[in-house]
Structure formats: C-alpha cells, structure tokens
C-alpha cells in the first residue's frame, strides 16, 4: 500500500508527461496551447480562491462586506471582475488561434499529407512523395510545418497527436486541414478522438519524425515494406 502511495505520488509529480500529454509539447502548436493553459490555470486558481474566500467570509464573519452596497457587490463582482478577466483572455485566444491556422505560406509551399480515417485505422498518403501510402504510421520531417488533410471513409473520427497539435475531426464527405509541426525527431503517438464505434479505443497511430535529410528515404522504405508485407 505504501509503495502504491509512493508510486502514485511520483506519478502525480511526473504529472504532466506521458505519450499523449498535451502538457509535454513537442511542436509549436501544442506549445502555444500549453502556454494558454498555464495562463488560464493561474487565473482560474486566483478567481476560485477569491470567490470561495468571499463565500467563507460572508458566511463565517457575519456582517463582513455589508458596508459595500449590494449594487456595488453586483457591479464589481458580476460585471467588472469578469470584464477585466474575459476581454483580454478572448483577445489573447483569438490571436493564438489565428497563429495556429494553416495559412498559405508565401515562399515554399507547405507539404501536405492526406489522412483518411476508417473504422478503425488510419491511412496516410503523401502527395509530395510520389503518392506513397502508409497505414497507422505517419511519417514527418522534423522542424517542417506540414498540412494534414483529414477525411473519413465511413463515420466521424478525429485526428489527434496531443504532443504536437490540437485535433481536427475526420468527417465523411469533407476535408479538414490541420497544420502540424514536430520540433525534434522521435516517436509520437496519435489517436482517434471522436467516438466511432467498437474499435474507438484502439484506433491509434504512431507518428515517426525523421531528420529532414533522412525523411524521403525513410518514408520510401516504410511504404515499400508495407507494400511488401501486404503481398
């Protein structure tokens, strides 16, 4: 039991890491969103403490705050406080969201990968790499932004690599674009994030990030190996 407590304590301390953790970002998008989270968390803790503190004071110290007129209570707490918190937050989030969009770049075109979900697997096609395909393994080059065009063959799925970026739904009949960038080579984990039936829990995929100079070769090798495996 004691060991269990120690382990759980360690787990909570290690806390933010994990293969699917949004708080251990490995790419620009996830990084930006994690920052937003930490800012909001700090604000939320302060506001929570404030409201609960006020509740404690008015209940356990009768008369506390009765010199503040009722109208002022409501205006300060109900209008001013949310106003000064929400307006900057909305502005910040809109700007942050804008930076994550797959905007057309002016220089070199952003490479694309087509991701297709189906019950219950993912197929990735690489138009810029001769249209080769891989299943359940997405190959990316480190440090390069990539646009993932996500769609579905059957029901709605969602493409999500928590350590790299937010998610986007794979909707049949539509194509949604998500910009992803991995900073460092390595292995990342992705999963389906929209309930899609019996195999939803196991509809995972792996993201292999290569050094840019190795990317083409590694992808070709993987695609060929898969093709051979099928035969």
């Amino acid at each position: 039991m004691r060991a269990a407590i120690q382990t759980s304590g360690a787990a909570l301390l290690a806390g933010c890491s994990g293969p699917f953790s949004t708080l251990a970002p490995g790419g620009a998008a996830a990084d930006s969103i994690a920052s937003l989270w930490w800012i909001m968390l700090a604000g939320a803790v302060v506001l929570f403490a404030l409201v609960m503190g006020l509740f404690g004071l008015v209940v356990w110290r009768p008369g506390w705050g009765s010199r503040v007129s009722p109208a002022r209570w409501i205006v300060l707490g109900g209008l001013v406080l949310p106003g000064i918190v929400l307006l900057p937050l909305i502005a910040y989030a809109l700007v942050a969201g804008e930076r994550l969009l797959p905007l057309p770049s002016f220089g070199s075109a952003v490479p694309r990968v087509e991701a297709e979900g189906r019950q219950w697997s993912w197929t990735f096609r690489y138009p810029g790499q001769g249209g080769v395909t891989t299943s359940n393994v997405l190959h990316l080059a480190a440090g390069t932004p990539v646009d993932i065009d996500v769609t579905s063959k059957d029901v709605i799925h969602a493409f999500w690599v928590p350590t790299l970026a937010g998610k986007i739904d794979a909707v049949p009949g539509r194509t949604n674009r998500l910009r992803v960038q991995a900073d460092r080579p390595g292995q990342y984990e992705g999963q389906c994030n929209e309930f899609c039936g019996l195999g939803h829990a196991t509809m995972r995929f792996v993201v292999l990030v290569h050094r840019p100079e190795d990317y083409a070769a590694a992808l070709a090798r993987a695609a060929a190996a898969e093709g051979a495996g099928k035969k």
Binding site: G65, P70, W73, G77, G78, P82, L86
Partner: peptide, 25 residues
C-alpha cells in the same frame, strides 16, 4: 465566454445577500 457574466451577477448577488444578512448555518 461572456455567458460567464450573467452567471457571475447571480453569484455575487447571492454573496451580497449573505453579506448583508445574518447568515445562519
């Protein structure tokens, strides 16, 4: 986000009611 405002108005109205009354537990 601004849906929080009318909610906050209610919460502070309740706090003010307690503050201006003699709360019994």
């Amino acid at each position: 986000a601004i849906v929080a405002v009318p909610t906050a108005v209610q919460i502070f109205a309740w706090l003010a009611t307690l503050s201006h009354g003699r709360p019994r537990w």
